[in-house]
Design a protein around this nucleic acid. Structure first.
Lengths: 138, 138
DNA sequence: CCTGCATAGTTGACGTATCACCTAATACCT
DNA sequence: AGGTATTAGGTGATACGTCAACTATGCAGG
């Protein structure tokens, strides 16, 4: 399921818009903030992505005109990622169908109490992952 | 979780062997069959992979000497994927630590009845995915 | 000031995944 | 047999992710 569910959502997005699932995740983060402007590191944390991955992805999205980078006044190292008007238009156009797809594939299928049980299980495994972050000793 | 759990298992495999998680999955399928020899299409179905993906992956594994292709006597189009001795050695050496990691991250954390609940939820969503295979209408 | 270290972010190389398309062999149908 | 459709599998282009290494700025202690 952890491959086929994202794959299905990805295909739906591609069919209805020019966005990939990761594109969508990035844009959601940006629209969720007041200024549609986020520091790269904060964005990486919110998405639980590596900085490197985000950097590559932002570059691709920048080439397509969905976002752009901007300098940070106080800190010469930092960078903002900023939603462009085109980016905003794109996600606003793509969101409804995506939300419907998520509802149809998950929430219509599962039921509330099951969902809670699922959440509990996932949290436990995530906690395991965090505590054993230095895995390779097993 | 669907990104970080595979990522953790992947890192563990890489640390303890020269295998990636997909490599491991392929090798498991091969060792699970009597002759360590499987038709490409059967392998793709068992892994729930696209033929194309499998073809690319087999080529990479072939270059590393883990598997090799073999002709099918009756059918000039087909191909077997065959486990090489090196491939067998590699997976036998890698499996114990991987099994331990899976147990530690999942089965130690979750508990039997929760696991059953999890399975039920995943099955429902998978059923949704199959029935709505022609998604993009939403 | 200046040396050293930490932080923010980028880059290049490489493995992986998908898509659209291609080739060759087989099956089917008359 | 001859023509068409189907099936098995492979390929090239491109996007995605990770790792290791890099640049440049900031910052702290002497």
């Amino acid at each position: 399921m952890n491959t086929e569910l994202p794959a299905a959502l990805h295909r739906q997005l591609q069919a209805d818009s020019e966005l990939s699932l990761p594109d969508y995740d990035v844009l959601v983060q940006l629209t969720d903030t007041a200024e549609a402007r986020v520091r790269v590191l904060d964005l990486a944390r919110a998405l639980r992505w590596e900085r490197s991955r985000l950097s590559h992805h932002i570059k691709r999205m920048e080439n397509r005109g969905l976002v752009r980078r901007e300098e940070v006044p106080g800190d010469g190292r930092g960078a903002f990622v900023v939603l462009t008007p085109a980016g905003r238009r794109t996600i606003e156009q793509a969101a409804p169908a995506h939300v419907r797809a998520v509802r149809r594939l998950i929430f219509d299928a599962v039921g509330e109490e099951e969902l809670a049980a699922l959440g509990a299980v996932l949290d436990k495994v995530l906690a395991r992952l965090d505590e054993g972050a230095e895995l390779p000793g097993v």
